[in-house]
């Protein structure tokens, strides 16, 4: 369970109630009513009623993937504040960052309605092993070429995923997806324009862009992973398209832009989810025990296949040191004062 950590399962069907949130974290954060008032109210609860436990678990996992992707991407984007190539771009880029965090809030609210923790607790208090974001979005920003290329391939994936979710049987996902797609259109357009411009400029810009492609590509398999519950998501109609269909749609989105930018199409990376190899961030092989360096925890995404432990990346809670560092900064204020409101 990504959201509540261990043993924090909530009774399905508890509409609008947050069962057993005695940990006081939600109230302690103090900002709950404002967040709720500002955020569109996701309507998950009716679906949760009578939802089979494995479907609920799959839904929670997917919501965490969506929320964590958007929060982490928005956080990385916000680090560009005051440092973008020009003041006009600084303002434009910051709006995109705010949109991403706003979308994360929507998904965290949806989790709360399923009986999971308060959005702030979910965003700030979960350890890396409980996070479901793709590795791609947690990587540090590097240069502007990496930033816009990473953003472009992520936004294209996000758009494809959201388009599929508009047909979800979970109303919160279907309704949220329709609204988010409208905002993501500008993100995609803006990033696409950047990629094209850097490619067409040639010279240093094209060199940097090419280097960015090399850096981004190994993370794609992880980005495309739909997590440990992918089969249930599909069969229950929560995410009514399989990963390979999404990947095809993603290629249709991304490849023409590469062609217009003068970047040779690198081909698709191996589909990581189907592999039986040990896959860990950074390329190091983790021996049988699968303890993740830097966290000291056994991620709950470890599954055994053919007698060998198979550890996947971000969607299974296995992250890089970049996420540790990001979270360390993010919780610097809230961390040492667990009972305080902010």
């Amino acid at each position: 369970m990504c959201a509540g950590g261990e043993g924090k399962s909530a009774a399905p069907g508890a509409r609008g109630m947050a069962p057993e949130v005695s940990a006081a974290a939600p109230e302690a954060r103090g900002m709950a009513p404002e967040v709720s008032a500002a955020a569109p109210q996701p309507a998950v609860a009716p679906e949760a009623r009578g939802m089979a436990p494995e479907v609920r678990a799959a839904l929670v996992d997917l919501l965490c993937q969506l929320a964590d992707d958007e929060l982490t991407m928005g956080h990385r984007d916000s680090q560009w504040l005051g440092l973008a190539p020009d003041v006009e771009e600084d303002v434009a880029f910051s709006s995109i960052a705010q949109d991403e965090v706003g979308h994360a809030v929507y998904f965290f609210e949806a989790l709360r309605q399923l009986g999971e923790d308060h959005p702030d607790a979910l965003a700030f208090d979960r350890p890396p092993a409980a996070r479901r974001n793709a590795l791609l979005v947690e990587r540090s920003n590097s240069d502007w070429a990496y930033t816009v290329l990473r953003h472009f391939v992520y936004d294209a994936w996000d758009a494809v995923r959201l388009r599929a979710l508009t047909a979800s049987r979970v109303p919160a996902l279907a309704q949220g997806a329709v609204r988010m797609l409208r905002e993501e259109r500008y993100h995609l357009l803006h990033m696409e324009t950047w990629v094209r411009a850097l490619g067409q400029a040639g010279g240093e810009a094209l060199d940097r862009l090419t280097a960015a492609v090399r850096a981004v590509w190994p993370d794609l398999g992880d980005l495309f992973d739909l997590g440990a519950h992918a089969d249930t998501l599909l069969s229950a109609g929560v995410l009514p398209q399989p990963a390979d269909a999404l990947v095809r749609a993603w290629v249709a989105e991304v490849r023409p832009v590469f062609e217009a930018s003068g970047i040779p199409w690198p081909g698709l990376p191996d589909p990581a989810p189907a592999s039986t190899e040990v896959v860990v961030p950074g390329g190091a092989v983790v021996p049988g025990g699968a303890v993740v360096p830097g966290t000291g925890v056994v991620p709950d995404g470890v599954v055994v296949s053919g007698g060998r432990p198979v550890v996947f990346g971000g969607r299974r809670g296995v992250h890089t040191e970049a996420l540790d560092e990001l979270l360390g900064e993010m919780t610097q204020v809230s961390g040492p004062h667990p009972s305080a409101r902010w």
Partner: peptide, 16 residues
């Protein structure tokens, strides 16, 4: 806004 083309001007004007 200061921009290299009308296309860029439109994109940054939206948020500025």
């Amino acid at each position: 806004v200061l921009a290299p083309s009308a296309e860029w001007a439109l994109q940054v004007a939206r948020e500025n």
